[in-house]
């Protein structure tokens, strides 16, 4: 029985008068990849941020790794958050640090005692450096250690941010619009990295996107370690669940086949049959 990684039960998120999420319920299980689609302002980013307590739910229940997070103080969430890798929309690399320090940041600031607020007593610098190099090699940016984020292209920034997100090998990864604003070739590269991470480290993931092509890749391809390319895989579809948000409400949840056969006009707009 797969373990529950993230569970939303009737979650509503309200900002003043605006309801960003309305009565949303779903469960993300170990090994699954969820593709969250929706128009701009439909609550996709809020959903991701609420999942790790960056935004607070006004009502409902959220469980991360089977631990309820609402009502917990910020400090009490730090240990849980360290088990989640997050890719923010524009990468959110720290401007003042070079790529090496950005990727190494989660490794160097890891806590060793739950809830104690203490940093790891001893950081093995050689192991840390090796892991930074490994994470950057994974996203094919191994030569950019000393570059500053401002010196990277949009796609490279996104890849460096993926390296930071996976540096600690977290079991759960959240990607917020990983391909937004990128050209088709770079967008494919980013999605290929997300699939590679899923298949190499067996991670559970949630990918927020407005591009159906992104979900289509995740649901139909796997990473082939022999040639480093994506190859068709029929098994991937069963572990890829699509979710569609409309004005904060979850209006669809299901596998790709069900999504493509949906008669809902809003859902149909997101599904392109090339």
């Amino acid at each position: 029985m797969p373990e529950s990684m993230l569970r939303f039960e009737n979650v509503t998120v309200r900002f003043d008068q605006l309801e960003a999420l309305k009565d949303v319920s779903f469960e993300l299980k170990e090994g699954e990849t969820r593709i969250v689609m929706g128009a701009a302002g439909s609550g996709k980013t809020v959903l991701l941020k609420t999942a790790i307590g960056l935004d607070c739910a006004s009502s409902g229940k959220i469980s991360l790794f089977d631990q309820e997070i609402q009502g917990k103080a910020e400090r009490d969430l730090f240990d849980l958050r360290q088990r989640v890798g997050v890719l923010f929309q524009e990468g959110a690399l720290f401007d003042s640090m070079n790529v090496e320090r950005n990727v190494g940041y989660p490794l160097l600031t890891r806590r060793d005692v739950k809830g104690s607020g203490k940093k790891a007593a001893k950081v093995d610098m050689a192991a840390t450096h090796a892991r930074i190099q490994e994470a950057l090699d994974f996203v094919e940016l191994g030569q950019t250690l000393k570059l500053m984020p401002a010196e990277l292209s949009g796609g490279m920034r996104r890849r460096a941010a993926i390296a930071r997100a996976v540096a600690t090998k977290p079991p759960l990864l959240l990607y917020d619009s990983p391909t937004a604003g990128l050209d088709p070739i770079t967008a494919y590269t980013i999605m290929a990295l997300i699939i590679k991470e899923r298949d190499v480290d067996n991670t559970t993931a949630m990918v927020v996107t407005y591009r159906y092509q992104d979900g289509n890749l995740v649901a139909n391809f796997r990473y082939n370690p022999e040639d480093g390319q994506l190859v068709p895989d029929e098994k991937a579809a069963a572990k890829t669940i699509f979710m569609v948000l409309k004005e904060g409400r979850l209006i669809f949840e299901g596998v790709q086949e069900k999504l493509e056969s949906s008669t809902d006009e809003y859902v149909k707009k997101f599904v392109k049959r090339d």
Binding site: E74, V86, R110
Partner: peptide, 13 residues
């Protein structure tokens, strides 16, 4: 640019 959120997500106050 969500760097503050990134910091919180990395478990740093």
């Amino acid at each position: 640019t969500e760097q503050i959120d990134a910091m919180r997500a990395l478990g740093i106050d």
